[in-house]
Design a protein around this nucleic acid. Sequence first.
DNA 1: CCTGTCACG
DNA 2: GACGTACGTGACAGGG
Length: 931
Amino acid sequence: MAFGKGCHLHLIDGSAYIFRAFHALPPLTRKSDGLPIGAVSGFCNMLQRYVEENAGPDAPTHVAVIFDKGSHTFRNDMYDQYKANREAMPEDLRPQIPLTRTATEAFNIACKEIEGFEADDIMATLACQARRAGGRVTILSSDKDLMQLVGDGVEMLDPMKNKRIDREGVEEKFGVGPERVVDVQALAGDSVDNVPGAPGIGIKTAALLINEFGSLEELLDRAEEIKQPKRRQTLIDNRAQIELSKKLVQLDEGMDLPFSLDDLEVRDPDPEILLGFLTDMEFRTLTKRVADRLGAEAPVIPEATAAVTEEAAPDWPAIDAATYTCVRDLETLHAWIDRAQQVGTVAVDTETTGLNDMRCELVGVSLAVAPGEACYIPLAHRAEGGDDLFGADDLADGQIRMQAALDALKPLLQDPSVMKIGQNMKYDAKVLSRYGIEIAPIDDTMLMSYAMHAGEHGHGMDTLAERYLAHTCIPIKDLLGSGKSMITFDRVPIDKATGYAAEDADVTLRLALTFKPQLHRAGVTRVYETMERPLVPVLKQMEMTGIAVDRDVLSRMSNAFSQKMAMLEEEIHDLAGEKFNVGSPAQLGEILFEKMSLPGGKKGKTGKYSTPADVLEDLATEHDLPGRVLDWRQLSKLKSTYTDALQEHINPDTGRVHTSYSIAGANTGRLASNDPNLQNIPVRSEEGRRIREAFVAPEGKTLVSLDYSQIELRILAHMADIDALKQAFRDGQDIHAMTASEMFNVSMEDMTPDIRRQAKAINFGVIYGISGFGLARNLRIPRAEAQGFIDRYFERFPGIRKYMDDTKAFAKEHKRVETLFGRQIHTPEIAAKGPRAGFAQRAAINAPIQGTAADIIRRAMIRMPDAIAKLPVRMLLQVHDELIFEVENGAVDDLIGVAKGVMENACDPVVKLDVPLVVDAGQGANWAEAH
DNA sequence: CCTGTCACG
DNA sequence: GACGTACGTGACAGGG
């Protein structure tokens, strides 16, 4: 039947169906092989319900499910920030996308998508064609972008609320008719799609203006006539941005489609094909329901053989090193690869010659496809007994040639439809990357544990195996030994290595099967999917890039420090009247408190005097020696930890320094940097800050540093809901001065640096879970006075005390606290008695604040690679509230614009802060200049 | 291997 | 009423 009068076209927004199905359902997996199919299941159920509900007299004559295809559309060419705030597609959803197309076809419903266009444009074009032909159209979607199509026989139906949206519905939502919806959207913008619009103008104001002037064009041409001065200026200043926004929201109704309306005619499904598909997916209930409706026999779905179920199966085979396979030829390897491909999920572990993933060599790879089914593929083990001059570096027999094995593994490890599970996958991903394999998609058991159990215990594999599998892993010591006689993994006999390596893969797989279904129940799926797992490739890239360090600068500083230290040491020995080890607190304590009888000597647990800096500072007024020791200590620290150690960390292959970030190191969600720690490079003292001059941009490039201004205090203002603080941040005030002014009744004009400094200490104290003692020590004032400050602070900002009390109460009740983004930090010690309770309480107060800040910069980092993809720039480092980039000189301003936007909007669209986030930028030839 | 000290946010 | 107290990290040196 040709489409025409009397015809009724249904357009189903396929992508919306998929996302709703994905988020509404727990992460179901196909029993036989663990393939994630939650979204497919939900999608099929929705299609079936659609079919059942649309069989009556008003049944459509034509129907199509329309999908988005490709992430880059013509709108991105107009505006590269379009939809830049979108969360990346969850890894579990990705492999399900093609299956939803297959499902649509199995239902024998037309399934359409066109590369480079959004589903909305296809639907707009089809709706217009149908309208012109005199037919009716119903769009099954709740997307407000589609409301511009309503009218003249086109309606929308919100499938969630089962609510029809006609002209009146659109006017209710936008305050204007469908033909003016794009005008309102152009002004109001859209944070979800990142359409800028006019700042400060929302839907209400936009509708008011459009109704007054008739159209957007008219409004912009006659903007001078607007009465409100601020509004007038906004429209005049942002004309180009508003016009761009209109182009972004305007749907393309005139696409050239490679099919016609007639191709969308409603067709009955072929029972064999549809039931075949549902059976393949192992949807028991739905298969039966569909079979009943089609009057067909429901096929029998065999019980699952593999042990992938909602709960970790209790009947898993025991973990036994003797049962694993050693893969020594290509044929066997291919059999394992095929098996992994079929299952769709495989645990992967690499064995290497060391712990440094930038320098070690690959020795072997292990795989696990089901509990108890694991293998080890040795690749570079050395021949045994070769400890003499000859043969020591010969490869042991019976190993597949490295390159041949990697060539065979590469398609599996890069296959987008096969999930690769690892424990601390960043390590393996970096090693494999150095061998030409970019492993993806990945799951990480360490990160699953971190998302669920941060604060409860560590997340190393041995710990997890003990706790969750009641299994003690083979200690690596048993293979490598320890201390001086320790060997590298390539010297381990292959038999012994097989048991160890394959066990790691087996354990990892079992942990993943245990944890994966628990994520949803613990309420941390989103944390894991959006803030843990996607960070792995981002950090991998940063770490592998590294930062250029000028060895000569460090070396000269080391020499200068040595000389000064030698001079100081001599002076110290003279003042003490004897030679001793200045670096030994024990010996120094003896000199100070015994020999010289200076006051304030306190002994620690070990019965030795303690000589921290603040004690020495107090003593400096009494004697010259303590001051000299402090100077010596500073130089000693700078030399040993920085100027000397950093030189050792310059990678000979790249000439750069490559830190490694632990994602699951800090309980709060912060990263930790190690080998070397580049998050504690000196900055507070002038002498220390000069070490940053050694961190440089190569010729023709610039280092750019972007840091969040006062992010934790802003979060506190939001979370504790303190109006005065929130307003101060909105007005861009000096927050410490403002606090001081409020507390001490000093006007901002009469503010002295000292009053401000005290207020600043209190502000930070609040974040740390303030105590009179702590503040007193920090400010070096009597305890009673400090307590007075705190009392006055709480009097002025009662919301802060309420936040602290509420947080403590929450922690006591739930044994955990949460960030604004849902990250959980467990506080098992909160119920402890004695001093531990105090620690736990203050940690509980601090964790949501520090953790939310950590979440925000994580989100920014995850979005950054896409945002800066077109610029000649690389992201190098993260220092908690700061990101450092290396950029070609010509692109500095572009980078600052783009990256700042990503950082300042990193909360979107999940959390709306009541305070703005502000990012400051710096640039220079080295880190000292950029900061 | 633990402790003290000190570098950072 | 006494006790011990700011939050989160990592690296280095000394000393058993």
